[in-house]
């Protein structure tokens, strides 16, 4: 033989799975929600999403190329996912500059400062979102009324999110039944007929993405299901105790960023636990903190803080919750 043969340790086969393929699956799963947001908010949604995705890619490229001086890895698609998720959690009326600042914070502080993909303790998209949320509270809580391509961004006609309606209602101590009358119906919430971030308001499309991710085995069911179950159980108990002061669990499940957060953000590989047991604890923690913030905290929505808080616990969860070793039960 004239050509040198290759030698390597086993295994000599590979599944063909790759980081960029996984990220592509996530992007595909986000398409229904994106389509819905275009239908609801028109051009503004397209602008916000494309600005966020492209600026995330550009910032990642620039930081890797010129600051860290190493190989660039934008082709793995993780920056695009970060950008898309960041855009989805913003109001459709967010100014372009603000979107770019959010992207810079997400990529620069949330991801690259920790060493890039795989080393960041917190979900970069959420870091960007929370940064914007705290820095620009007014813009970040003015939700344009979804009117398709006619959505006006100039006129400050905004609709409060259902969670804001509840929070405000409870603050001025209205009775829940009167608050509920101001709320959109569950069916409307399911399809996104309300105020909210551009990607998170159409629950049905996010669930479609969830289904896709499950079928392609990109994520396991553990984190989303444990978050949603916890929220449902916790709010259900409170609702049973006092229906006049608490919204029903169905409303809690479908409103706000809960679905987007639990399906796409909490399941971020890098910032979630490795074992199934750990995932469930992580999910329960997020669910509890979310409900506590929603019900007792100052903010109407708590999922983003809940995920960030639980992100901080992931290393701890990973080091204490081990998978069940083969042959362990007999040993002990």
């Amino acid at each position: 033989m004239n050509k040198l043969i290759t030698v390597s340790p086993s295994p000599h086969m590979h599944s063909g799975q790759s980081t960029s393929k996984l990220m592509t699956h996530v992007l595909i799963a986000l398409i229904p929600a994106f389509a819905a947001s275009v239908w609801l908010f028109g051009w503004s949604s397209i602008i916000v999403v494309s600005v966020a995705v492209s600026s995330c890619l550009i910032f990642e490229f620039l930081i890797q190329k010129f600051l860290l001086k190493k190989e660039t890895s934008i082709s793995d698609g993780s920056a695009a996912v970060t950008g898309a998720l960041l855009a989805f959690s913003l109001p459709a009326s967010t100014p372009i500059g603000m979107v770019m600042i959010g992207s810079l914070v997400a990529i620069g502080i949330g991801k690259m400062s920790f060493g890039g993909l795989g080393n960041n303790p917190f979900n970069p998209a959420l870091v960007g979102r929370v940064f914007l949320f705290i820095s620009f509270p007014v813009q970040m809580t003015s939700w344009p009324i979804p009117k398709g391509f006619e959505t006006s961004l100039v006129d400050a006609i905004t609709a409060p999110t259902p969670l804001e309606i509840v929070k405000e209602g409870m603050r001025i101590s209205e009775n829940m039944s009167s608050v509920v009358s101001n709320l959109p119906s569950n069916m409307e919430v399911f399809c996104g007929k309300m105020g909210g971030s551009l990607g998170e308001i159409a629950a049905c499309t996010i669930l479609a993405g969830f289904l896709y991710l499950l079928i392609t085995r990109v994520i396991s069911w553990h984190i989303p299901v444990s978050i949603l179950t916890t929220v449902a159980v916790f709010t259900g108990i409170m609702w049973l105790i006092d229906p006049t002061a608490n919204a029903n669990p169905g409303f809690h499940l479908l409103s706000g960023g809960l679905l987007l957060g639990s399906i796409f953000m909490a399941t971020d590989y890098v910032t979630s636990p490795m074992t199934h047991k750990g995932m469930i604890i992580f999910g329960v923690g997020i669910g509890l903190i979310t409900v506590i913030i929603r019900r007792f905290g100052a903010y109407p929505e708590g999922i983003q803080f809940a995920i960030l808080i639980m992100n901080a616990f992931v290393p701890l969860i990973n080091s204490y919750l081990k998978p069940k070793r083969f042959g362990e039960m007999i040993n002990e």
């Binding site: 040198l4 043969i5 290759t6 030698v7 390597s8 340790p9």
Partner: peptide, 9 residues
């Protein structure tokens, strides 16, 4: 002379 190529860790 090299007689084969190693491709692993």
């Amino acid at each position: 002379p090299r007689t084969n190529v190693y491709d692993g860790a």
